[in-house]
């Protein structure tokens, strides 16, 4: 059956452009803001909903499979007198717990998480984030100097406090930033060009993401009794 033989659009062909039923009521009194753009729309039912359902089923299948194969952990009855060593928080808080290893509780447990949450909330309220201009597009020498100063200060600070885990992510990050700064938008290296176009918020968020992932992984796999460093394969 070819496309032309069809009298109706097939069940899934709900492209509102191709299907003929299209109504618009425009009266003189109301003038809705209609911007006609070259943007194809589809009907939510069935296109979007079926895709959503497929996605839902995929994750459900994956989770059912995991649940059939692996049992949820359960240890002995809670005993306040018997402290396991190490006592670990749930994995998503292990980054925080790792921070507590380096900083006093007020900093690692209260100040940093609060600042992170506040920082996340205010992201969309800063024009610099909204405009998202590439970091190196303007004032490059000045900004490179700024980068150098901030990196140096951070390095000294973290080194004094012996926060090697944070330092390990910060230094390569700064190097990457400096590396991406040294090109024009039409340079041959695509990765470098792509990084060149990234705004400050991208760099900060990426730094945060890598940092959080690193701390969490260390907390989950590399910490043993007394929060000492252990290799996960050493047991």
């Amino acid at each position: 059956m070819s496309e032309k033989d069809k009298k109706f659009a097939a069940a899934l062909d709900s492209d509102s452009r191709r299907t003929p039923v299209r109504l618009a009521f425009l009266t003189r009194r109301t003038s809705p803001h209609v911007s006609v753009k070259d943007e194809p729309f589809v009907m939510t039912w069935p296109d979007a909903l079926f895709r959503i359902m497929v996605a839902a089923q995929l994750v459900a299948i994956a989770l059912v499979l995991v649940s059939l194969l692996w049992d949820a952990p359960l240890e002995g009855l809670a005993d306040p007198l018997q402290t396991p060593n190490p006592a670990k928080a749930p994995w998503y808080f292990l980054g925080l717990q790792e921070l507590l290893h380096y900083f006093p509780p007020v900093v690692g447990g209260v100040l940093i998480p609060t600042l992170v949450v506040i920082a996340l909330i205010v992201i969309p309220y800063f024009n610099v984030n909204i405009q998202a201009e590439g970091l190196w597009v303007r004032n490059k020498p000045q900004r490179l100097r700024m980068l150098a100063i901030v990196t140096a200060a951070l390095t000294v600070f973290l080194a004094v406090l012996k926060v090697w885990a944070l330092l390990a992510a910060t230094l390569p990050m700064a190097a990457l930033m400096a590396w991406s700064a040294g090109v024009t938008p039409d340079a041959p290296n695509r990765l470098r060009r792509w990084l060149f176009s990234k705004p400050l918020s991208f760099w900060i968020m990426t730094w945060f993401l890598i940092q959080a992932a690193l701390l969490t992984i260390i907390g989950v796999y590399f910490r043993g009794a007394g929060w000492e460093w252990v290799w996960p394969w050493s047991e």
Partner: peptide
Amino acid sequence: GDSVRAFGSLSLILLVLLAVVPAK
């Protein structure tokens, strides 16, 4: 082939997996 077919097939797979639970 399309999302309707995928939905149908995945529904079956999910049902079969869920049937493993009482079997287990």
